[in-house]
């Protein structure tokens, strides 16, 4: 049982390497205007293709907010100081595919740690691979147990 367990852990970690390789810039640019409020983003989900250049313009309807993208580990804070514009821009190349949660990086009240949105970089190899692995595990393990274990 321990062997199967470790094999599964290893296989799933291997997924990381299949999806790892970054793609060169595709040449297409996608720009999004994201408006932050306590405690959500509008739009909450943005979708791009792997290799796109992404420009995120963060605005706020109420107080200071920020954006931090997990996986890419990039961040932009929007502190509404007097005389400063109500917008901050984040530019990057979406070279890693998958689904990445972005969250608020400026303390903005009680639900700040849970203020999130999603960046989807297609195609989501990680999810596709894991799903296939899950289906195989579910069905094949029953087969294996039924045939080989009394």
């Amino acid at each position: 049982m321990l062997v199967v367990f470790s094999a599964l852990v290893f296989l799933t970690s291997a997924l990381a390497f299949i999806t790892g390789p970054a793609k060169a810039v595709t040449g297409s640019t996608k720009e999004f205007v994201i408006t932050a409020r306590q405690w959500a983003y509008d739009p909450p989900v943005i979708e791009v293709e792997q290799g796109d250049e992404v420009i995120i313009r963060l605005k706020s309807t109420d107080i200071s907010h920020g954006i931090y993208i997990e996986g890419y580990d990039i961040r932009a804070d929007l502190i509404l100081e007097e005389g400063m514009p109500n917008e901050v821009v984040l530019k990057f190349v979406a070279d890693k595919p998958g689904s990445f949660i972005f969250r608020c990086s400026v303390n903005c009240g009680p639900f700040h740690p849970f203020m999130t949105g999603v960046l989807k970089v297609n195609p989501n190899y990680a999810f596709q691979g894991a799903s296939i692995l899950a289906v195989l595990t579910g069905m094949l393990s029953l087969l294996y147990l039924a045939v080989f274990r009394r």
């Binding site: 109420d62 107080i63 200071s64 502190i79 509404l80 100081e81 007097e82």
Partner: peptide, 13 residues
């Protein structure tokens, strides 16, 4: 010397 105003310089709603 004098009277100086203190105010909040970051918009806070």
């Amino acid at each position: 010397a004098g009277v100086f105003e203190i105010r909040c310089s970051v918009y806070c709603g």
